[in-house]
């Protein structure tokens, strides 16, 4: 559905350089710190900024050949950007009806009622959480084939985040040909939602992994200095010095479980994975 090949985009002091694929029927996550290049990647795919080199294909077409009609099949949430805050949700409904042939007004109104969004309120009168809900509802309102959601859960409390994630999951289940690229800095969002994820740091993709494999095969091994010396290091990805010795990241949990049954070996969550990928040292 979306292919990014050898993309390069340079700003003073920053270079985005990445390859990525978002196939149909998958929810792909994009994680990284603030300023890692997540939003730049989204904006480049949406042609809001232009790449210096590389190639982006969307719906099997070069990005330059994407028409207004094709753009009807893209559902977008952008961090910090939305419809003018001086119009009401009722106005937004009228505008969406003009922009999107497949806009489902009845379903959108039902969802607004479900999320207690008063359609007569101006956008500027909505809380941060309400605005985030509105943005996601809009992206899901016109049967888009691909969702490009940049930080859709930012500013939301736990319950509201769960609601939004459930809504996205439900939307994806409705049609198995749909695809989604979602960025978030909240790792648990991605753990529960995404089929695979890319980790981006300083404009570069440093890891691409299936979520299932991450949760089953990746492990954090905590060892003393003595234990570390004896440890087979061929499956260690990163190592970080700690007060007690070393914390090691591996993608071969079974190997270490079988060969070092006395060691402390824990499953790795995304948060710890990010931390060790960014702060740990390569072997």
């Amino acid at each position: 559905m979306l292919k990014v090949k050898e993309l390069k985009k340079t700003y003073p002091g920053f270079e985005l350089s990445c390859d990525m694929e978002v196939p149909a029927g998958r929810i792909t996550g994009l994680i990284g710190q603030n300023g890692a290049g997540k939003s730049t990647l989204f904006k480049t795919v949406l042609q809001l900024c232009y790449p210096d080199s590389g190639n982006i294909e969307l719906f099997g077409k070069d990005l330059k050949e994407i028409t207004e009609k094709d753009k009807q099949d893209i559902g977008v949430v952008l961090a910090e950007s939305q419809f003018s805050s001086y119009i009401t949700i009722e106005d937004v409904i009228k505008i969406m009806k003009c922009f999107y042939e497949a806009f489902n007004e009845e379903d959108f109104r039902n969802k607004c009622a479900q999320f207690q969004l008063d359609t007569h309120k101006k956008i500027k009168e909505l809380s941060t959480g309400m605005k985030a809900k509105l943005n996601v509802l809009l992206a899901l309102s016109h049967k888009a084939k691909i969702l490009l959601l940049d930080e859709p859960t930012v500013g939301l409390d736990v319950l509201a985040r769960d609601d939004i994630l459930a809504m996205i999951r439900e939307y994806m289940v409705e049609d198995e040909e749909r695809a989604a690229l979602i960025s978030s800095h909240i790792s648990t969002d991605l753990e529960t939602l995404c089929d695979d994820f890319y980790m981006i740091h300083d404009g570069k993709i440093i890891l691409h992994e299936e979520t299932d494999r991450l949760l089953s095969d990746y492990a954090i091994i905590k060892v003393s200095e003595e234990e570390y010396e004896k440890l087979d290091k061929k499956y260690l990805l990163k190592v970080k010095k700690e007060a007690f010795g070393y914390r090691c990241l591996s993608d071969q949990r079974e190997f270490y479980m079988d060969n070092y049954p006395r060691l402390v070996i824990e499953r790795s969550g995304i948060d710890e994975l990010i931390e060790l990928m960014l702060r740990g040292e390569s072997i």
Binding site: L46, L48, E68, L78, S81, Q82, S84, S85, F99, Y100
Partner: peptide, 21 residues
């Protein structure tokens, strides 16, 4: 000015329109 406010252009041009129109 309303289009420009609050980074509005980014969202506007992600809608099914092109820059010329």
């Amino acid at each position: 000015s309303y289009d420009e406010a609050d980074h509005g252009y980014a969202f506007l041009f992600s809608l099914p329109i092109n820059r010329k129109s």
